[in-house]
Design a protein around this nucleic acid. Structure first.
Length: 399
DNA sequence: TCTGGGGTCCTAGGACCC
DNA sequence: TCTGGGGTCCTAGGACCC
């Protein structure tokens, strides 16, 4: 999709059409999640710090992201694509691969299909997208980027060799800043340049990815378009308005993230074997600490206990910029557990807490995010001492 | 005035097992 | 008699993607 989040905002609010729109946090420490094409003309791009973007484009309207809305539009886009082939692989909220191998008799040649897909997407959601078509997956992706917005680029089989010969190496998916630097030092500027290099030489310098690049340079990409890929991890994190070393505050935020992650686990009927604590120092160095649980956990309480223990063992030499909690080693919630090996009482206790948290989900779904909170979470959005928990007289507002 | 949040995959060392 | 070979799991960091 073209400038997806920004385009959705312009779609929903006609007052934003034709204007510079930046979607992202406005807290001073945020970055641009999406910039409308009007804003891009002023040198703004996504992932740019918001303050920089606003310096380049002071007239821009900053809009907070509405993830739910984008997810809804995304779902309809994916459905529109599914009409062409059962093989649709969403790779992110605004991008998907479509395998139309063997659909020629039904839909016609590649450019015809591509045009039809663009039309179907526009009819479904009223937004433009850019489509790339090629004999192999990675070239289709690169092609989709050639002409934007509202682009359509086909790399026909007989064009593949020429396309690769002059393709800047940095355009290849997986070649980022570091790899590009390494390759530049080797005298490689275009994907085609890799033809001079032997696979062992590339593997020596780039590891497993060297072999992959060698194949790509020959136009070979065996990666299939696969529909089903279950999540391997879920997480929740936040960057603070100001760096902090306040352990009480950090623990409190950790609990909030534990609740968020637990909600995701429940929604997807999963448990986690691994709990990850993520912290970023004021100087941007990132650290993770993880622990493998004796049996998979699902409740916020259990996630929090593990993460808090990791945090307690983490020496806070410098104040932290970010804290996050992740869950990995995901297993289906119904998967068998060697329950008998654990104390009966402990098992019953965690079962009861799972029930409590599911009840909290139902209340949250119905009455909103802050309809119910743990007492320890009330009034704890900033560093400092917690205020006392309270219960209002009518009993309608619980903290 | 200060660089998000959510992911995936790879690497590498150490513990441990047979 | 101075220490193999193959495997898995765990942990931490890093590159990369949208």
């Amino acid at each position: 999709m073209d400038a997806f989040f920004a385009s959705v905002e312009q779609l929903d609010d006609p007052g934003l059409r034709g204007r510079c729109v930046l979607v992202g946090g406005r807290s001073g420490r945020g970055v641009v999640a999406a910039a409308s094409y009007e804003a891009r003309k002023h040198g703004v791009s996504s992932a740019m710090p918001m303050f920089q973007a606003l310096r380049r484009c002071p007239q821009a309207v900053v809009v907070s992201p509405r993830r739910r809305r984008y997810a809804e539009v995304s779902r309809r886009v994916m459905e529109a694509m599914a009409a062409f082939s059962p093989l649709v692989e969403p790779v992110s909220i605004d991008e998907a691969y479509l395998d139309v191998t063997g659909c020629g008799r039904l839909h016609g040649p590649a450019d015809t299909v591509a045009r039809a897909v663009k039309r179907a997407v526009f009819d479904a959601v009223g937004l433009t997208c850019s489509v790339g078509a090629a004999p192999v997956r990675f070239l289709a992706k690169i092609a989709s980027d050639v002409e934007k917005p509202d682009g359509l680029t086909v790399v026909w089989p007989e064009q593949v060799e020429g396309f690769i010969a002059t393709l800047p190496i940095g355009k290849v998916p997986g070649v980022g800043r570091k790899t590009k630097e390494k390759l530049a030092a080797m005298g490689v500027s275009f994907l085609g340049d890799l033809r001079q290099w032997s696979e062992p030489a590339l593997t020596l310098r780039l590891g497993r990815y060297g072999r992959r690049l060698k194949e790509l340079s020959r136009g070979i990409d065996g990666t299939p378009v696969s529909v089903h890929s279950p999540a391997k991890s879920v997480s929740s994190e936040e960057t603070f308005a100001r760096d902090t070393g306040d352990r009480l505050f950090l623990r409190c935020r950790l609990l909030a993230h534990a609740e968020d992650v637990a909600r995701q686990l429940r929604r997807n009927d999963l448990r986690a074997r691994v709990v990850v604590l993520k912290v970023k120092d004021g100087d941007f160095t990132l650290h993770t600490r993880n622990t493998t649980c004796p049996r998979p956990v699902q409740t916020a309480g259990a996630l929090y206990r593990e993460a808090a223990a990791l945090l307690d063992r983490y020496p806070l030499v410098k104040p932290l910029r970010l804290i996050g909690l992740g869950a990995a080693g995901l297993v289906p919630a119904g998967a068998p557990v060697q329950g008998e090996l654990f104390a009966e009482a402990e098992s019953r206790c965690s079962k009861e807490w799972e029930e409590v948290e599911r009840a909290m989900d139902r209340i949250t779904d119905r009455f909103g995010r802050h309809a119910i909170e743990r007492a320890s979470q009330a009034s704890r959005k900033k560093p400092g001492r917690p205020k006392a928990a309270r219960l209002s007289k009518g009993g309608r507002q619980w903290s």
